[in-house]
C-alpha cells in the first residue's frame, strides 16, 4: 500500500522534473542576450572565434538535441560541466554546497520551532492580554521584515558598527567553516545567519500556532479534557497543542523542503555562505545554464520529496487521515 503510494510519487516527481527542466531550458534560450557563446568567447571576439566556440560547446545544435544532451550529462553520465567555468563539474559542486545549506536550515529550524512554540503557546494561554498582543505584534514585525534586509542590518551591526564591542567581537568574518574542520567556528559563524533566517519563520509560525491553539481551545474535546480535571497547562500542551501540531508539521515540512532546496538563497548571499542557494544565485547572475539546471532540478527534487514526507508524516500524526476502517 505504502509502496504503491511511493511509486506514484516517484512518477509524479519525474513528471515535475521534466516539466521544470524544459521550462528552464526554454526560458534561458528565450532571454535575449543570454546566448552563452558570446560571453564564453569573450569581449570583442571575431565571428570566426564565435562560431568555433559555439561549435565546441554544442550550441549550434537544435534545441531538443541540446536539451537531450544536457539531461544525459546531468542524470546519466553525471559529467555536466559549467558554461562559465569550463571543465568545472556541476554535480560535485552542488553536492559540496549541500552540507552548508543543511547546516544553515537545520540550525535555523531548531531555533524557530522552539521559539515559535514558546511564543505561540504563551500568547494563546494569555490570549487577550497585553503580553499576547505584544507578542503577536513582534511576530508580525518578524514576518514583515524581508530576510535580505534583516541580514544586511545584522551584518551592519555585528560586523561593522558594534563589531569591536563585547557583544559582537566573537562574530567571525562572513563565510562558512565546515563542521569537521572547526566545530566552534562553524557554530559561531552560523549563529547570526540562523537567527536572521529564523526570525521570519518564528513570526509566521507563532501567529499560526496561536490562531490554531485559540481555535482548538474552543473545541468540544477541550471542554471534555477540562471536565476530566486536567490543569490548563495540561489541556494546552496535551490536547490543544497536539492537535495544532498537525498544521504545523505540514507547514514545516514544506518550508524546510523549500529552504533546503535553495530557498535560503537570499540569506546565503547576504552572509556569504556557499550553499545551494548561493550557487543558484550565482548561476542565475552568470547565466550559467548547466548550473541553473542542476540547482533547479535539485530544488525540485527536494520539494517533491518534502511534500511526500509531509504526506507520510500526516498519516502518523493524524489518525483520521489513515483512512476509514
Amino acid at each position: 500500500m505504502i509502496f504503491l503510494v511511493l511509486l506514484r510519487r516517484l512518477a509524479e516527481m519525474v513528471f515535475v522534473l521534466f516539466s521544470i527542466s524544459v521550462l528552464v531550458f526554454l526560458i534561458f534560450f528565450a532571454t535575449p542576450g543570454a546566448d552563452p557563446a558570446a560571453r564564453i568567447a569573450g569581449r570583442g571576439a571575431s565571428p570566426a572565434t564565435l562560431a568555433a566556440v559555439r561549435h565546441a560547446f554544442g550550441l549550434d545544435q537544435p534545441l531538443p538535441v541540446q536539451y537531450g544532451l544536457m539531461m544525459k550529462h546531468l542524470f546519466i553520465t553525471q559529467d555536466l560541466t559549467s558554461f562559465v567555468n569550463p571543465g568545472q563539474l556541476v554535480i560535485p559542486a552542488v553536492l559540496q554546497a549541500v552540507p552548508v545549506t543543511l547546516s544553515l536550515v537545520f540550525g535555523a529550524a531548531v531555533i524557530w520551532l522552539i521559539f515559535a512554540v514558546a511564543i505561540g503557546v504563551t500568547a494563546a494561554a494569555l490570549r487577550g492580554s497585553v503580553i499576547d498582543r505584544s507578542l503577536m505584534f513582534l511576530a508580525m514585525a518578524g514576518v514583515s521584515m524581508p530576510v535580505f534586509w534583516l541580514g544586511e542590518v545584522a551584518n551592519l551591526i555585528t560586523q561593522a558598527r558594534f563589531h569591536n564591542t563585547v557583544l559582537f567581537s566573537w562574530v567571525p568574518a562572513l563565510g562558512y567553516v565546515p563542521l569537521t574542520q572547526n566545530p566552534l567556528l562553524w557554530f559561531k559563524s552560523l549563529v547570526i545567519p540562523w537567527t536572521v533566517l529564523a526570525v521570519t519563520y518564528i513570526g509566521l509560525y507563532s501567529r499560526v500556532l496561536r490562531a490554531n491553539l485559540v481555535e482548538a481551545l474552543t473545541e468540544d474535546y477541550i471542554r471534555t479534557a477540562r471536565a476530566k480535571g486536567l490543569s490548563e497547562r495540561q489541556v494546552i500542551f496535551r490536547h490543544a497543542l497536539r492537535m495544532s501540531l498537525i498544521t504545523l508539521v505540514s507547514m514545516f515540512g514544506l518550508d524546510f523542503g523549500a529552504l533546503v532546496g535553495g530557498g535560503a538563497l537570499l540569506i546565503e548571499v547576504v552572509c556569504a555562505l556557499p550553499g545551494v542557494g548561493m550557487l543558484t544565485y550565482q548561476a542565475l547572475q552568470n547565466l550559467d545554464l548547466p548550473f541553473i539546471m542542476a540547482t533547479v532540478m535539485y530544488g525540485a527534487i527536494f520539494i517533491v520529496a518534502a511534500n511526500t514526507v509531509v504526506d507520510m508524516l500526516y498519516l502518523l500524526i493524524d489518525p483520521r487521515a489513515r483512512g476509514a476502517r
Binding site: 474535546y221 471534555t224 471536565a227 480535571g229 486536567l230 492537535m243 493524524d318
Partner: peptide, 23 residues
C-alpha cells in the same frame, strides 16, 4: 480540579466532537 472528573463528572451533548481525535 481534584473534584472535576473525580467526585463529579460530566458528559456532553455531542459525542462526535467530545473526544480528542489523536489519542
Amino acid at each position: 480540579r481534584r473534584l472535576r472528573g473525580g467526585a463529579m463528572a460530566m458528559i456532553f451533548q455531542d459525542p462526535m466532537t467530545a473526544l480528542t481525535p489523536v489519542y
